[in-house]
Amino acid sequence: MSEHSSWAEVKQRMRAAGPEATDAEREERKQTARTATEAYVLGHHLRVIREEQGVTQAQVAESVGISQARVSQIERGKIHNLESMRTYAAALGAKIKVSIEYGDRTVGAA
């Protein structure tokens, strides 16, 4: 018999041990984690583009009208809104496209 458990078994044991979180709360936590991961990945890609262009954080900050510290935060995934991302990307000559995915449909949103 294996000492290893499947992920489903681990989650089931965690729910039994600490049922204080509702399904809605768990779903909210998953969405929060997903959003944070997406922001981190986007920030990473913006940094890569900036570095490929040989532009410093200070140069981007001056172009966008924000502090160098804020540029650093954005590149580390501390992005708070879509307009910040769009402005940063525009300073690098890039665009951010937004789409809505629902079932098998994808619609351009902005």
Results as ranks from 00 to 15, higher is better:
R47F: 05
A61D: 01
K95D: 06
S5W: 09
S84Q: 13
V48C: 01
V107N: 11
Y88N: 01
E3W: 09
Q53R: 00
T56M: 12
Y40Q: 05
I49Y: 03
E83P: 00
R50I: 11
R76G: 10
E101F: 08
R13W: 01
Q53H: 08
E38Q: 10
H45R: 02
E51L: 02
A69C: 11
A21W: 13
A24R: 15
A94S: 05
A109E: 08
H4Q: 01
Q31G: 01
K30S: 12
S5C: 06
K11Q: 03
E51G: 01
I74G: 03
S84D: 08
Q53N: 06
A94H: 03
E20G: 07
P19M: 01
G43H: 03
R15Q: 03
R70E: 00
E9N: 04
A39L: 11
T87I: 10
I100L: 14
G54F: 07
L42F: 02
R86H: 02
A91N: 11
E9C: 00
S2N: 04
R34Y: 11
S6V: 02
T22I: 13
A89P: 15
T56D: 10
Q31F: 00
A90F: 12
I96W: 02
L92K: 10
I74P: 01
Q68T: 15
G108N: 08
V107W: 15
A8D: 02
H44L: 14
V41T: 15
Q57L: 02
V60F: 07
Q68V: 14
V60Q: 04
V48D: 08
D104L: 12
E38I: 11
V98T: 14
L82T: 14
V55W: 07
A69P: 15
G108Y: 06
Q68M: 03
I74K: 06
E9H: 04
R15W: 05
H80Y: 10
T35D: 00
R26K: 14
K78V: 09
I79N: 06
V10H: 10
D23V: 07
S67A: 02
A33C: 11
E101K: 15
K78C: 03
R47C: 12
E25P: 13
Y88F: 05
K78I: 10
E28R: 11
G103C: 10
A58H: 07
R105H: 09
S72A: 04
A110V: 09
E83D: 07
A8W: 02
K97I: 03
Q31C: 05
Q57D: 10
T87M: 07
I74C: 02
R13A: 13
I79Q: 10
A16H: 02
T37V: 15
E28Q: 13
H4N: 05
R76C: 07
S5H: 11
V55C: 11
E28T: 07
L46V: 09
T35K: 09
I79E: 00
T32Q: 13
S5V: 04
S72K: 00
A109H: 06
